[in-house]
Design a protein around this nucleic acid. Structure first.
Lengths: 155, 155
DNA sequence: TTAAATTGCGCAATGA
DNA sequence: CTCATTGCGCAATTTA
């Protein structure tokens, strides 16, 4: 239930602050190592690029704030998207689980059905064999009766 | 808007840069910052509670840094865990997908097998119907036809 | 080169 | 109080 929390914002309303800077700016930020101007390249420290770079990081700059604001929005958007995707994935898992159960049930049914038919088939085969052995090629009344029996069992 | 926690502003000059985790340490400038006294509100400057609160948030405090450090670790840990979980979920999805394919293949096989057996029975059913028709005085051709129909429906 | 999207990280509020 | 979570902003990178 946390709702109000305005970590890095300026006093007052959240939106655009009057003085921002505090932001992360906890201590002072030193440059660790970065912005390596490539290896042998540009031997001009005071180049225009340097100037721009500096400006780009000027927290008081208007453009800076604008950029930050945009990035913050992008971040929010991206995170929302990410969260959504994660949720979708979870949903997908449940979906697949259900599908799985459905398939397993179907397999069970088919297997059962198959078993019945196979048994029937085998039984009938035996009868046939018997009949074939005792009689010639024509169906007899007995056969018919048997068949009837099978029929009833099957249905 | 109520008690605004004064976020990250470094009180006056933070001479503690050393302490700070190099953390982000990127910007290249120090932040001159402000101490935004909240909107006119300190009605009780001498409040003990206020004092304590303040102390708890005193960035210069030794305990403060310690707490921050611990929390940062906890955060990292938590996020790692979260990421891991997400990864597991994705893996679960693939696992279920495979399982599904396996099941579908099995169903296909069973269905095919079933089809063969059913066809056999179906063929036999015709003979049966014929027999039934011939040996039963009440049965009519219509009955036989209906049986055929049932077969088709059932199989 | 630029702007948007991602990603890692620390802070603070809050939950447990 | 300590640890776990979570929303948020900053800045470096990656994409497009």
């Amino acid at each position: 239930m946390s709702k109000i929390s305005q970590p890095n914002s300026t006093p007052g309303v959240n939106g655009i602050s009057v003085i921002h800077t505090q932001a992360h700016a906890r201590g002072l930020q030193q440059v660790p190592q970065l912005v390596p101007a490539g290896p042998g390249e540009e031997a001009k420290p005071g180049s225009q690029q340097a100037e721009q770079k500096k400006l780009a990081h000027d927290r008081n700059s208007d453009g800076y704030r604008q950029r930050r604001e945009r990035n913050n929005m992008a971040v929010k958007k991206s995170r929302l998207k990410s969260k959504q995707k994660a949720q979708d994935t979870l949903q997908r898992v449940n979906q697949l689980k259900e599908e799985n159960e459905r398939l397993e049930a179907k397999i069970k049914l088919l297997t059962k059905e198959l078993r019945v038919l196979k048994d029937l088939f085998l039984e009938h085969a035996h009868n046939l064999a018997d009949n074939v052995q005792s009689i010639s090629t024509e169906n007899t009344t007995a056969d018919a009766a048997q068949n009837d029996n099978l029929f009833e069992i099957f249905f």
